[in-house]
Computed example of a mutant assay.
Amino acid sequence: MRFRAKIVDLGCLNHFTRVSNTISKLAKTCTLRLSPDKLYFILSDKVANGGVSMWCELGQGNFFDEFQMEGVAADHNEIYLELTPENLSRALKTAQNAKTVKIKLTNKHCPCLTVAVELPSLSSSSRIVTHDIPVGVIPRKLWTDFREPTVPDFDVSIYLPVLKTMKSVVERMKNLSSHVIIEANLKGEMNLKIETDLVCITTHFKDLGNPPWASEDASQDRDSENMAEARIDIKKLLQFLAGQQVNPTKALCNIVHNRIVHFILLHEDVSLQYFIPALS
């Protein structure tokens, strides 16, 4: 089992750093799945038990100048590691102006992801800063626990408003309630609502648009003006909105009525899915 990768391009390094920063805001620990073509950051708290789930997928060719790996077996050429994303994020923060960054799987008293950052120097010799990030190797028999989450048939799919705007609205609401109702329809309308014994506040977003497949895949008997809604933990929603550094080209929200809210952020070379279960 081997893994080594190298980033030279500064733009790719900064992009990878932004992705790792986002992951560190969304999960205290997660699974890093390595395959020859892609990297995945996976958080698989059981949604049925009220936990959030995350699935972030990166095409390695868009980030790494060199990428070599040998999985646990020829017929299973993958590696699954458990890591604390904050440690990876911190290591990459030292690489702001690096000449190169090398990441490899090592064994130093315990399995580690070793991040070697080559920094520019005034002298002819380079300065290299090394970070050893402890990881746990996940045995193959447990890999099925980390498959891509299945998306239930949604009632509404809608494009999200500007994430910064949505974040500022939710930040104000969290001072008044511990949960928020998110509702949307097939006419491009979305509302964020909080309802307490003392106050009821709604923020309306209009003309957001629905993806072309929304009206085809959504329940056939649903009127386009009917709202699908889910009541979710406001802190979990704010954690998702506050952690975003991916700068998506498209941001979508799927709602399964009273069951789950499924967010998708799409960039040219990154996709991030985030699942928040509805509160009963």
Rank of each mutant, 00 (worst) to 15 (best):
E57H: 05
E57G: 01
G59I: 14
Q60T: 15
G61T: 14
F63M: 05
F67K: 04
M69Y: 04
M69G: 04
M69L: 12
G71E: 07
V72D: 09
V72W: 02
A73R: 08
A73C: 11
A74F: 08
A74D: 12
H76G: 02
H76W: 07
N77Q: 15
Y80C: 08
L81Q: 07
L81E: 03
E82N: 12
E82T: 15
L83E: 06
L83K: 08
L83Q: 06
T84M: 08
P85A: 15
E86W: 04
N87H: 06
N87K: 06
L88I: 15
S89E: 03
S89F: 01
A91T: 10
K93R: 15
K93W: 07
T94V: 15
Q96A: 14
Q96L: 13
Q96M: 10
N97E: 13
N97D: 14
A98K: 07
V101H: 06
K102Q: 15
K102E: 15
I103S: 02
L105S: 03
T106P: 02
N107G: 00
K108N: 00
H109Y: 00
C110Y: 00
L113P: 00
L113A: 01
T114W: 01
T114R: 04
V115D: 02
E118M: 10
E118D: 12
S121D: 15
S124Q: 13
S125N: 15
S126N: 10
S126H: 07
R127I: 15
I128E: 05
I128K: 04
V129Y: 03
V129M: 06
D132S: 08
V137N: 00
I138T: 10
I138H: 05
I138A: 08
P139S: 13
P139Y: 06
R140M: 15
L142A: 14
L142E: 14
W143T: 09
W143E: 12
D145G: 09
F146T: 04
F146G: 03
P149I: 13
P149L: 09
T150C: 05
P152Y: 11
P152C: 12
S157F: 03
I158L: 04
L160E: 05
P161G: 06
V162A: 12
L163A: 06
T165H: 04
M166Q: 09
K167I: 08
K167C: 08
K167E: 14
K167M: 10
V170C: 13
E171A: 07
R172W: 06
R172Q: 13
L176M: 08
S177I: 09
S178N: 13
H179N: 12
H179M: 11
I181N: 05
I181Y: 03
I181S: 04
I181H: 00
A184E: 03
L186G: 01
N191F: 05
N191V: 05
